[in-house]
Structure formats: C-alpha cells, structure tokens
C-alpha cells in the first residue's frame, strides 16, 4: 500500500544507480566556480583545468552543461577489463576483484560521458557484457550450494547481488524453515527416548 510489493526487500536498478551517483569522482573543470556548501558534502572551489573530487551527480550536471570533463576511474578501460576477463576464465571458482558498483558506474559513463572514455564505447560495452555473462554463469553455478545458515559471495558487485537476491533470500528462508523443523523433531525424539528409558 505505502510501498509497492516489488520494492519490499529489494532495490530496483534505477535506485541502485541513484545511490551510486553519491560516489565521489574526479573531474577536470573547464571553468571556475566558487565553493558551494551542501547538506551532505561541500563542493570545493573549482578552477579551470585543476582536478577536483566531487559527487558523481554534481559531475553529471556540470557535464551536461559541458562545463567539465569527467576523469574515468582507472579500472574503466578496455585493457584493464580485458585482463579481468582473462582472470575470470583462468580462475573458474572465484570472482575477480572489481569495484563494488562497477556495473552502475560503467552504465552512467556510457550513457552520459562516453566522450571522456579512452576507448570506444563499443569495445567497452562488449567487454562489459562478456564480463557480466561469465560472472552470471559462475554465480548461477554457485546457487547449487545454497544452504540454510550462511553463504559467502566475495567479489560480487551490488548490481549482481541485487539480481540474485530475489532468488537467494526466499530459498534460504525455506531451507531454514525445513532445517528448523528437523532440528525440533530430533529434539522431540530424543526427549521421547529419555522418557521411555
């Protein structure tokens, strides 16, 4: 009622990218602007061609008015991602280390600041797609090992977690309920044994 049921217990991709826009990013301003005090942070005094760190959403506003260039993070280029892809293939049972919200940041860059990337967008898009698919295969394979108490998922990104959350959580909850009933039955049985002795 207050909250549509598809929002309960999960985040939508849009919300994720909204949250990601609070990350800090380096920009290269093209003009000067005075310091602004905001509620959450404050934007430092910008001077033309001097690198500064600002929240991503501020960078996007400035970018849309072509008042700055956004410096892509050092992992967002074809070579680095290609290396990661090879690593994913080599280590079949492990996720390679990527930033926690790599998918969201890449998406924002491709949509809004593609001219700031060093490589062509097609290359980035295809390597990202490859990476995403191989990681998805791995996480699907890992789902076989779900159990009732806990599970470790190191290296997964936020977006990937969100994708499997709708499946993982209910399954683990059911497994836990089943587990609890067997535990209770065992206790009850041992009680009965004691009684009969």
């Amino acid at each position: 009622m207050v909250l549509p049921s598809n929002l309960i217990g999960n985040l939508t991709p849009n919300e994720l990218s909204f949250l990601t826009e609070n990350e800090m990013i380096t920009i290269l301003p093209r003009y000067s602007m005075n310091k602004i005090d905001l509620i959450g942070t404050s934007i430092p005094k910008l001077r033309a061609m001097r690198r500064e760190k600002v929240p991503l959403w501020v960078a996007l506003i400035l970018k849309s008015q072509s008042k700055c260039n956004i410096v892509p993070p050092d992992w967002l280029n074809h070579q680095y991602l290609k290396d990661k892809y090879d690593e994913e293939i080599r280590k079949a049972n492990q996720f390679s280390a990527l930033p926690f919200n790599w998918l969201e940041i890449t998406k924002i860059f491709l949509d809004n600041a593609s001219d700031d990337l060093q490589d062509s967008t097609d290359e980035i898009r295809s390597i990202i797609q490859d990476l995403k698919e191989i990681r998805l295969v791995k996480s699907r394979r890992g789902l076989k090992e779900l159990n009732e108490s806990n599970i470790q998922l190191n290296g997964l990104g936020m977006m990937e977690i969100n994708e499997i959350r709708t499946f993982v959580i209910p399954v683990m909850n059911k497994l836990r309920q089943l587990h609890d009933t067997t535990v209770k039955e065992e206790e009850a049985e041992s009680d009965e044994d004691e009684m009969s002795e």
Partner: peptide, 17 residues
Amino acid sequence: KDLKLQLMIIETELERI
C-alpha cells in the same frame, strides 16, 4: 549564469535528500 548553476546544484541535492 554562475549563480544559476550553483542554485541548480543546491536544488538538485535537496531533491535527492
């Protein structure tokens, strides 16, 4: 124009929060 941009940024942050 400068001020307009600054106000816009402040407004955007308000909306986000």
